[in-house]
Amino acid sequence: MSGREDEALAQAAVTALTGALALAPKPGLPDPRDLGARASRMDHCRLRWSAKALAPGLAAMAAAARRTGEPTPGLRTELGAIGRCTEHSVHLAGGGHRGALWALGLLVAAAALDPRAGARDIAATAKQIAAHTDKRAPRRPSRGSSMSAKYGAAGARGEARAGFPHVRRALNALISSRAAGATEEQARLDALLTVMSTLQDTELLYTAGPMGLRHVQAGARGVMEAGGTATKAGAAALTTLDIDLHARACSPRGSAGLLAGAVFLDSLPVIATP
């Protein structure tokens, strides 16, 4: 790999994230409709802008993986240091995307280690990287770690150490929905809802508690059981869920970051083509 290929991986990840942001309607999450809502207009604009601030850090992660050549403890520590610097840059640009940075950073680094690897192999390599401890990470509790300790939820760290099962599930949903005739937007919404239906989202646990999490999971399952967003019944169920979650201020942010990871992996065969 070269520096140009590192940048290409980073840009693919950012494109995946901005593509996920562009989807609508996303239940409980910012989407382009916010541009017409004065109260929340800045949320979507800020997230679109700050997503671009991830690119230099993601390219640096790809370069670090390429130099190291293996999923070593040293690589995990270096990725952590780059990630914290990138978080600061993103904060200055408007904030957000912390969960997406974690998932995309590991997947980009794993893809850089073996440019010829398929999506499942990349997820497996990311699992190997995540299995190591970042010895330089600050020893302070986060929302996610607090909820993981309190409720036993896997959280972002557990998701990575399990090989990103929800990213792989979202990727399968993308492929299945396309094969069934869904549009690209509908397929991506189905992938998002697939993640929402089972993910133990620690951010939701923090803001809405176990009952709120179960409510979101049940609503997402309801859309998929109605046939998915490409069907009339599924689209109606999605509209109902969207209104409900926005009214409750339930935001499944963890699912959004994992959807971006799936869209990134889905794009890799395309960017690997000369």
Rank of each mutant, 00 (worst) to 15 (best):
G83F: 09
G105T: 01
G228H: 00
A153E: 07
R188S: 15
E203H: 15
R253Y: 07
L199D: 00
M42C: 04
R67P: 01
A124T: 02
A103Y: 07
S251C: 12
P269N: 12
D31A: 05
G152A: 08
A8I: 10
A22F: 11
L171H: 12
G209L: 04
M1F: 04
S50A: 13
T86M: 10
D31C: 09
R67W: 11
A247E: 14
R157L: 13
L104K: 01
T77E: 14
A187W: 14
M224P: 08
A237L: 06
R116F: 09
R168I: 11
A20M: 12
A109S: 12
S176D: 13
M42S: 14
V108C: 03
M42E: 14
R66E: 14
R38L: 08
R41F: 04
R67L: 11
H215Q: 15
A170E: 05
Q11G: 00
A154F: 06
G222Y: 05
V195S: 03
S267T: 13
T273F: 12
G80I: 04
T202S: 12
L79K: 01
F164V: 09
T231W: 00
R98S: 12
Q186F: 08
R168A: 11
A93N: 08
R221C: 14
D6Y: 05
L58N: 05
P138Q: 05
Q128C: 09
P73M: 02
D134A: 07
R140I: 10
F264N: 06
E225L: 12
G222V: 09
R253H: 14
G105F: 08
D242Q: 05
A187L: 11
I82F: 06
G234K: 01
G118H: 12
R248V: 06
W102T: 03
V108I: 09
A39S: 13
A24S: 15
L101E: 04
D242W: 02
I82Y: 01
P73K: 02
V195H: 00
Q128H: 05
A131I: 01
S89P: 04
P56T: 02
V223W: 04
D34Q: 06
S251W: 04
T239L: 11
L238P: 03
A8Q: 13
S255R: 01
S40K: 09
E184I: 07
S197W: 00
H166Q: 12
T240N: 04
A160D: 11
P274Y: 06
